[in-house]
Design a protein around this nucleic acid. Sequence first.
DNA 1: GCAATATCCGAGCAATTGCTCGACTTCGCT
DNA 2: AGCGAAGTCGAGCAATTGCTCGGATATTGC
Lengths: 197, 197
Amino acid sequence: MTPAAPEPKKIPKQARAIATCAAIVEAAARILEEQGPEALTTNRIAERAGVGIGTLYQYFPDKHAILVSLIRRERGALLSELRGIEAEGDAALGEMIAASIRHQFDRPKLASALEHIEQAFPLGPEAAAMAEEIAALSSDLLGRRFAPVERTDLLTAVLIARTIVNAAGDGLLPQDGLAERVERAVRGYLTNVTSRA
Amino acid sequence: MTPAAPEPKKIPKQARAIATCAAIVEAAARILEEQGPEALTTNRIAERAGVGIGTLYQYFPDKHAILVSLIRRERGALLSELRGIEAEGDAALGEMIAASIRHQFDRPKLASALEHIEQAFPLGPEAAAMAEEIAALSSDLLGRRFAPVERTDLLTAVLIARTIVNAAGDGLLPQDGLAERVERAVRGYLTNVTSRA
DNA sequence: GCAATATCCGAGCAATTGCTCGACTTCGCT
DNA sequence: AGCGAAGTCGAGCAATTGCTCGGATATTGC
């Protein structure tokens, strides 16, 4: 019975426990940033968090869940920022791009690692759902600006934007003029979309 | 001494051994395609290749080297095709895109897995060098078509193209009209590059 | 102060990993 | 047929992995 706790095996009730939980997630993030996904072992996470391995398993059913929790933390931040922009009224392409860039460069290595780790082993429905929601929100915002464009093209544009930002975060592209570069790519793609065929 | 054999620990001399070597690399490819990078263990590779684990280590100094060998095989194919196009004379944007697409869709899962695996643990200088050469060749070809464009913008365009092709290979984007979509994105980005400021 | 509850701990287990090594088989040759 | 070199093999080792469990420690409500 108890089919499978969705995530934190046990919800912390004291402030200390909440901090412990956060420390574990943050430790995972740091290891990912500094040593890559290969080094992300449960023992190492616990050690880095300054916590016993047993404590870790008190709150997370398995290693997997820590990653999901981290992804939720990161994506959640971007998501709520995007929602704020959406609520602001009319579509602000520039603001959207700026938010994505800000999020990416806040912790570039982490953002990139998280992006890539998901395709290695699909991280469960929730992480995917958040990614989809970000994409949906972005393409909605985009759709208002560029009138009658197919959904697929909007998603492509979002993909292009994300890729350029990621590449800059990885250091493959210079980061000066990044926003302009992204905007140019998106505009270039979406503007030519109706003029063909 | 013997600082470190660059790759195959020992070069095979009989036809049988060459086949064994190839079988090992191909087994690694298949596992990557069907079960992802997590499942890629040396024992599993040997089993899948129908070969004893000892045999595997006769030709590859470590697990790492198998991956490098596989990457060389895959990237080498694309690279020589691109070089052929370059030699053909004037720049053929369409052909270049077509070649990349063909290569990607030949074994979509594999191409995508290989792309992502490299950022997990940097796979040595050779693999990186081949990636760079592909990028360089592509952007050269592109540079001829689109006259006075900065190198960074050419690289960005190549990145955009590769991303769209990869996304389609992963099933995130439909593959009908892929070539047009890629061409539109590249053209859209590079055309607007000079018209601004 | 004290019990009940919440939190933390880390030795250690079962499983898996990358890899070694010495014994066996097949090949190419005369 | 016979011999050395090339090739193959898989039991098993040292290390590491994800994770459990029973007991120690801290915090709370009284």
